[in-house]
Design a protein around this nucleic acid. Sequence first.
RNA 1: GGGGCUGUAGCUCAGCGGCAGAGCGUCUGGCGUAAUGACCCAGAAGGCCGGAGGUUCGAUCCCUCCCGACCCCA
Length: 935
Amino acid sequence: MVDYKHTINLPQTGFSMKADLAQREPKMLADWPARDLYGKVRAASRGRPRFVLHDGPPYANGAIHIGHAVNKILKDIIVKARSLDGFDAPYIPGWDCHGLPIEHAVEKKHGKPGQKLDANAFRAACRAFAREQVDLQRADFKRLGVLGDWDNPYLTMNAAYEAEQIRAFGRIVHNGHLYRGAKPVHWCLDCRSALAEAEVEYEEHTSPAIDVEFRVVDLRDLERRIGQPAGGLGDVPVSIAIWTTTPWTLPANEAVALRAAFRYALVEVETSTGRERLILASELCDASLARYGLRALERLAEFDGVALERLELAHPFLPKRVPVILGDHVTLEAGTGAVHTAPAHGQEDFAVGQRYGLPVVNPVGPDGRFLPGTPLVGGQRCNEANAVIVQTIAEAKRLLQHTPYQHSYPHCWRHKTPVIFRATPQWFISMEQRNLRAHALRDIRTVKWTPAWGEQRITGMIENRPDWCISRQRTWGVPIPLFVHKETGALHPDTLALIDKAADRVAQGGIEAWFALEPAELIGADAAHYDKVTDVMDVWADSGLSFECVGAQRPEIEAPVDLYLEGSDQHRGWFHSSLLMSEALHARAPYKGVLTHGFTVDEKGRKMSKSLGNVVLPQKVMATLGADVLRLWVASTDYANEIGVSDEILKRTADSYRRMRNTVRFLLGNLHGFDPASDQVAPADLVALDAWAIARTRELQAEIIAAYRDYAFHLIYQKVHNFCIVDLGGLYLDVLKDRLYTTPAKSHARRSAQTAMFHIVEAMVRWLAPILSFTAEEIWQYLPGRRGESVQCEVWHALPEVPASAIDWPALLALRAAVTRELEKLRDTGAIGAPLEAQVDVWCAPTGYPRLAALGDELRFLLITSAARIHEGAPPPDSVPVAEGVAIRVAPTKATKCVRCWHRLEDVGLHAGHPELCGRCVTNVTGAGETRRYA
RNA sequence: GGGGCUGUAGCUCAGCGGCAGAGCGUCUGGCGUAAUGACCCAGAAGGCCGGAGGUUCGAUCCCUCCCGACCCCA
């Protein structure tokens, strides 16, 4: 028996089946900086229309987690896809470097500023710490395969950035958005300082809980509001009852809050001092009266809270009147449904007070004592004042009850002592005074939000947010470089020029330069009358100004940019702060589009947490499955909602990665010996099936490009994966094997197939490049033909236009599916094993005959059977109808197997010199090779 | 507690008024070595479309309520 194996063309490629990504990727990465891949892509796209995705700076603290990976990978996919789509898409990564978490990290090592380190040394330690964190995170981001200007990122702590931020702040002041006000903050009486939210712990605490009456001043007004006849209520006193656990805040009371949509009841009761009437939330009426030991004699009326808005009430012990206001923070969980409101002593109170323009008057000093001159309690500590105030209310006959009450209450994390809310002077950006809110709401509508509900979400937040308090009493932040008059509190008349001078100094010496500055250096003799402000800006101002600060230094990033892309929490965060800053500076949005993604959760949809033990570390995934599998996982999920991750999900992802890799490997292996420059078959001369494959690829490419433009990567994943399995694996490549392996290496039949495969893989490597960046780069090295250095420098592959097919492929593919089903039945009976052991007869009505007969004898290659014959006319009784006017019969063939091509053919054994071969193999081995026109 | 969003097969996702779909995975089978650190092909099983009401001739789809997840705020 002659061995014909050397006469068939087997696939040959160095592109291995096993990916070994965990080992291979780091090696590839090691080359990239030397190749300056980012620079090459920039050079290749110079002069194209620009697409700018502006990076939201992650906070420089801690190793990256899976959420960082999702965010950066999505950005990278978009930047690379836009570049392939013909844009110049720069990517300058950034980091957020100032702020409390870094201060806390440094405090852990060195203690608070002023203890072991002075403030300046403390800042230096913060700077060094942030630098380390940036390096740590940068290494991981690069390992993900994210391409960007990693050597020149923007850091909010760069002196140039800090100076730009101060200049931008100056323009905001110039535009009239800044004012000085007061705001309640957590205040520790032992620290004598403000505490950030992160420095507060909640512990159980017992407070004096009291119910207090606020008398309605004008009963006639009340009658009108609740639909009672004029005078109908007589002169019996009416009070709104409130419940509070902080009696000492009552001197600062400015209002009583109701909920607009709650029902309230007016009930009559008999007290020790006589008949009176109380207003209580209907649902809390019984519970409240029970607490007071009273019984409702009569329920006189019921009405919505909204009816009482701005009704005047008398303060229970001070000679002043306060209004009824409405707020959503009023609940039915405890109390009376009416809430004592002291804007100086509570954040909700402050927020709702802002909406009503209530005064923020704080009578408590930094030591927790009431300021001298405060009526009733001047000079007393808050806890001492409680007793005095309760007694005073009782004497005024306004006290309904008084009991100790245990609840969760904020404590200082260092002193473990209860903290208070205390209003302090702060700097604000007004939402109203220069129409900031109105402008922001106007411009939100001009932005393309993806998903579309982002618009709803941020609109709601902008509509309801209070003025932005941008000052913090901290050490590690960009200064608010102002001078304030010691007596009047007015800003220095040269403020705008002084801010610029401060910026100049910060540009040289960083924020440290401001803190080191002697006021006289800038304002001369005025220094005697002015205080230098040492507050720093809220870090949200740092990142919120990134479009301005980065744009000033990097001309390729020019606002408004095309896209911001972050997690959905940033509607409250960076999207929000950036919008307000841009409106304050330029009265426009900083971005044209905003895209959000959800958070990662486990396979049960629960968030990642150490205690649940469901945390997936990106570093671990990269070290085992590889970054490309992580990237493919990101691409495969619908990131608009929660993004599930688990071992099973990643395993499935790795499976589909393998399938795509192997499909490419098959294509590359069969392109062995093909030079696209000389061996391509012209579109008009292609074997019909190859033309079909190219047309199908064109169609799919259009869908993929559209999906990239829509940022619908999970659809791309599905489409490409299905293409590999259904169109290629299940059909085209399966049919092609016979022709590739058995026809002569340089024959038209094989070159036609290679031409199609070449274009398919050229197209596919680009489809994959934004997602499987490492693998695409690897594929690139194995593709035939002269080509540029990296697939990332390319644009989408221009697939050849093939002439419209005269062949009805859908009909033939339906026939193929029917034959496959019949073959399966035959296999079940044991009559055949492989499809090549079978022959097929097809009977077709005259109208459909030309369609199915179009391939002639080559139909057998499409069906992968040894014979396929089409007959016009009525089917015999033993055939199986498979469609309108079509019947088939599949039967084992008795012909002899050709040892070379495995087809069972009648002419095997008839050829002298090649007794084991069929006729076409003889031609293929000894002659010019067989002719294929269709399959 | 409020606002936003979400729930389709074990997994990832389509469908979004007219007979519940794809791929993976699972199971079963096939063929070889002609995609071999395995690959390829075929077949089958798998769903009260989160639950309950409503609108409609007809609801996975529209409306209401409930349950659960997630984000933001309190």
